[in-house]
């Protein structure tokens, strides 16, 4: 489904990603872990198509298409969803408006009819339950005045509604207390399916207790230096990131 080959990317002339290789098959959950400055957020931004990153080498293929050739919105419509580490506030644009515009953009791309107001509302209410959000939130500006936990739940709500093929969760656990973390994780777990892949990017192991990955990769200085199963995360937790550095890059 997703194939990243020898991906190099730089920001303002500074190399951040230095040859990432990663293959994600349908239904798999991958966790990418790494210390601050390893390039985790760069990777998620590059996959989602944010401006300001220069791809100097390598390729990313998503469902047999060159992902890097697509605009951010084209990637979104094909099913690439980024749950932001820091969801922005957009005062004046209501949450419900955003959801409707986003859903209809995806549906139009898929050749489906736009949902009418009633069907849309029914669908939203159903998904709201999944992340335990009140309907009131729908009529407020996007993330405007939301707490950290509410913003993250709002991200998962959007994911639930847009039903992506590939979801990239960028530090979704950051800034969450344990209850919020559980709610968010339950939401994500409910969305796991045989044809949906998830890439979780995180600094800490604790998220992986709630969303159990099939594979764990360690990102360090722009490269994946170690890959394994969920046990690798536990090992990392006990030994720290310096342990990976000491072992050097994977062959």
């Amino acid at each position: 489904m997703l194939e990243i080959k020898n991906l190099h990317a730089s920001v303002d002339g500074k190399d951040i990603l230095k040859g990432i290789n990663l293959t994600v098959k349908p239904g798999e959950v991958h966790a990418i872990m790494g210390p601050n400055g390893a390039g985790k957020s760069t990777l998620s931004n590059v996959l989602a198509g944010r401006d300001g990153y220069e791809i100097t080498q390598g390729s990313v293929t998503f469902q047999d298409e060159d992902l890097l050739a697509l605009e951010a919105e084209e990637r979104a419509r094909r099913g690439v969803f980024l749950a932001f580490q820091y969801p922005v506030e957009i005062p004046g644009v209501s949450n419900i408006y955003l959801l409707k515009a986003a859903l209809n953009a995806v549906r139009t791309h898929q050749g489906l009819e736009e949902l009418d107001a009633m069907d849309f509302l029914t669908l939203v209410r159903e998904k709201l339950k999944l992340v335990k959000m009140d309907e009131d939130f729908m009529y407020r500006g996007v993330n405007e005045g939301f707490s950290g936990g509410e913003k993250k739940r709002n991200e998962i709500l959007q994911m639930a509604l847009l039903e992506p093929t590939l979801a990239i969760l960028d530090e979704t656990d950051s800034g969450l207390d344990i209850d919020a973390l559980k709610t968010v994780s339950e939401g994500v777990n409910a969305l796991r399916s045989a044809d949906r892949s998830i890439v979780m990017i995180t600094h800490y192991q604790r998220l992986l207790d709630y969303i159990v990955p099939d594979f764990v990769h360690v990102l360090s200085d722009g490269q994946i230096v170690k890959s394994g199963d969920k046990e690798l995360a536990k090992e990392l937790e006990s030994k720290g990131y310096s342990w990976v550095h000491a072992e050097g890059p994977a062959a």
Binding site: A72, E73, I90, G92, V93, L98, A102
Partner: peptide, 26 residues
Amino acid sequence: DMDQLFFLRARGLDDVTARSLLTHAF
């Protein structure tokens, strides 16, 4: 705001619509 713009595009809104939406909100 470039962050707001990217957010909207990452949710599938095209550039023109996203800009128009943000401008309208402003």
